[in-house]
Amino acid sequence: MFPTPIERTSIVTRSAYRIILPASLILWLIPLLGVMLTALRGPGDITAGNLWGLPSQWMFLTNMHDVFTNTPMFDFIINSFKITVPTMIGAVALSCMTGFALAAYQFKGNLLLFFIFVAGNFIPFQILMIPVRDLTFQLGLYDTVTGLVMFHVAFQTGFCTLFMRNFIRALPHELFEAARIDGASEFTIFWKIVLPLTRPAIAALCVLIFTFIWNDYFWATVLIQGQHAMPVTAGLKSLNGQWIAAYHLISAGSIVAAIPPVLMFFIMQRHFIAGLTLGANKG
């Protein structure tokens, strides 16, 4: 293990580590702690400049109540789910198929198609913005959840295909051959052999896509205009304009917006990190 395990170092280093570790964690989390603390306060504390002391009034519930009753925050959250969950299902389903096709079959243009999917991942969104907005208009889907989902599914298919193809390729190819000799159709191989084996990859992709799409801001501003279809990121920004200097409400709203991906991350942590660090340990 590198660096030297702390148990094997001198007592001085060990004690220093024991102090520095929590201290650095607190320092690192200060921005987030600040938000949490502020969400507990009333407006009085903020104008009085009491940012780090104990709140003079504990108003967390009042703030939350304010956020949910005086703003469409509840609708924003629902919209975010309506955008995120179908995208997650759509992109993962499509990429199971594309990934399988690119991993299990050799045909002319295989690698080229794969590289196109990969390259699509890295392009700047701005090069897609005008045509995609135009296309969404023409389909009559501008300013709707469906229009946004359609684009997200298409775009995320690129990343998911990269992921799935590499995962399926690492499976033992003899499995497919054996099944073929037993007379299994190609579809049976996909359904009965590949899909059950890719379950960890599917889980990893689901958490990643959930987080990416939940946190999307750009496409929500390009393809959505009204609050009726707006996800929570764009909604928060629009509320920010109304809540001038109402930092206790901004903080409460930010916390609400962050909870779903944070929960997802803590519950599915292993899958999340396995997905994110794909490729960081090979080559």
């Binding site: 499509l94 990429s95 198929m97 594309t98 399988f100 096709a101 690119l102 299990a104 079959y105 045909f107 295989n110 198609l113 196109i116 999917f117 699509g120 392009i123 090069i127 897609l128 913005m129 005008i130 045509p131 995609v132 296309l135 359609m150 684009f151 599914v153 298409a154 775009f155 298919t157 690129g158 295909t161 073929r180 159709s185 190609e186 579809f187 996909f190």
Partner: peptide, 28 residues
């Protein structure tokens, strides 16, 4: 079937990707 299957599996994802990601680059 071993020759056709990959294309059937690629079709839905590939078409969506072509329409929403690849074509717009050239349109832009």
């Amino acid at each position: 079937q071993a020759r056709i299957t990959p294309w059937l599996f690629l079709a839905p994802g590939g078409m969506l990707f072509a329409i929403y990601v690849i074509a717009p680059i050239f349109q832009s």
